[in-house]
Simulated assay, not measured.
Amino acid sequence: MTMKLTKEQIQFIDTYLENSDVVFADIRMEMVDHVASDIEDRMRASTTSDFYNVFKGYMVQNKAQLLKENKQFLKSADRKIWKAFLKEVLNPLTLLIFLTSFGGFYFLYSNFNIETFRLIISYVPLIGLSGFLLTYVVYHKVKNLKRFSVVERLAMPFLVFYQIPNIIFNFSYQAKDLMTVLWILGIVSIVLTLMLVLVRVSIKLFKSYEKQYKTLA
């Protein structure tokens, strides 16, 4: 006997999972497909076709495992981010951004005083942070997308890169000789480059999710 769940029943599963702290839409979609398939199998094998009773029995047995899988999906999201990040780092455009950044910072150092140089360095963290926030606002507020695991996990690497320039800013007080300055320029340029890479990765992932989960927007 064919037993397919209705749209209302599938939506009920989705809402139940969302209320059970499976907050990310991409993770829920995979779980809903899995749960719906199992419920259909149980309803075919059962003497009753009452969806809610079958669903209740299924969740009593499997809810803990589903929530455990939710955590595994989040780890998978982190791996996806770093894989996309590494791929973008190896893009020839990344080297061009680094060289441009280094040349720009060296020009500032050569043509302005050390205080102006240090002031510019202090703004570096805001560049990457602003890029991510603007991207996040555009895709979540303007385009009104649901919450996606990979998208929100991007906040962590941005936070890491946000902190590094603050350390360099304090170290820049020791910029007494050219070699030290060049080291500072190099590190700041690398951090700025990686921030811009993360912005590019963010935009690509946002577009990918917008296309893949368009029905959820």
Score class of each variant (00 low, 15 high):
Ile127Arg: 01
Ile127Phe: 07
Ile127Val: 11
Ile127Tyr: 03
Ile127Glu: 04
Ile127His: 04
Ile127Ala: 01
Gly128Pro: 02
Gly128Thr: 06
Gly128Met: 05
Gly128Arg: 08
Leu129Trp: 13
Leu129Arg: 02
Leu129Thr: 00
Ser130Gln: 11
Ser130Trp: 09
Ser130Arg: 04
Ser130Lys: 04
Ser130Gly: 10
Ser130Asp: 06
Ser130Cys: 09
Gly131Ala: 01
Gly131Phe: 05
Gly131Glu: 04
Gly131Leu: 01
Gly131His: 06
Phe132Ser: 10
Phe132Tyr: 11
Phe132Gln: 08
Phe132Ile: 12
Phe132Thr: 05
Leu133Gly: 05
Leu133Gln: 03
Leu133His: 14
Leu134Gln: 05
Leu134Asn: 06
Leu134Cys: 02
Thr135Pro: 09
Thr135Leu: 09
Thr135Gln: 03
Thr135Tyr: 10
Tyr136Val: 00
Tyr136Ala: 03
Val137Met: 09
Val137Gly: 08
Val138Ala: 15
Val138Met: 09
Val138Ser: 13
Val138Tyr: 15
Val138Leu: 15
Tyr139Trp: 07
Tyr139Met: 03
His140Gln: 09
His140Phe: 07
His140Thr: 02
His140Gly: 14
Lys141Ile: 09
Lys141Met: 13
Lys141His: 07
Lys141Cys: 10
Lys141Ser: 12
Lys141Tyr: 06
Val142Phe: 07
Val142Ser: 02
Val142Cys: 01
Val142Thr: 01
Val142Gly: 04
Lys143Cys: 08
Lys143Ser: 14
Asn144Asp: 15
Asn144Tyr: 09
Asn144Ala: 15
Asn144His: 12
Asn144Val: 12
Leu145Tyr: 01
Leu145Arg: 13
Leu145Glu: 11
Leu145Phe: 02
Leu145Ile: 08
Leu145Pro: 01
Leu145Trp: 06
Lys146Ile: 00
Lys146Ala: 15
Arg147Thr: 14
Arg147Met: 02
Arg147Glu: 12
Arg147Ile: 10
Arg147Gly: 02
Arg147Tyr: 13
Phe148Tyr: 10
Phe148Thr: 07
Phe148Arg: 06
Phe148Ile: 00
Phe148Pro: 06
Ser149Trp: 13
Ser149Gln: 06
Ser149Val: 06
Ser149Pro: 07
Val150His: 01
Val150Gln: 11
Val150Thr: 09
Val150Tyr: 10
Val151Met: 02
Val151Ile: 08
Val151Gly: 00
Val151Tyr: 01
Val151Trp: 00
Val151Thr: 08
Glu152Asn: 08
Glu152Met: 09
Glu152His: 04
Glu152Cys: 08
Glu152Ser: 11
Glu152Trp: 11
Glu152Ile: 02
Arg153Val: 07
Arg153Met: 11
Leu154Ser: 01
Leu154Arg: 03
Leu154Trp: 10
Leu154Gly: 10
Leu154Tyr: 07
Ala155Gln: 11
Ala155Tyr: 14
Ala155His: 13
Ala155Gly: 14
Ala155Cys: 06
Met156Ala: 14
Met156Thr: 15
Met156Phe: 14
Met156Ser: 15
Met156Cys: 12
Pro157Asp: 13
Pro157Arg: 05
Pro157Tyr: 12
Pro157Gln: 07
Pro157Leu: 02
Pro157Thr: 02
Pro157Met: 09
Pro157Val: 01
Pro157Phe: 03
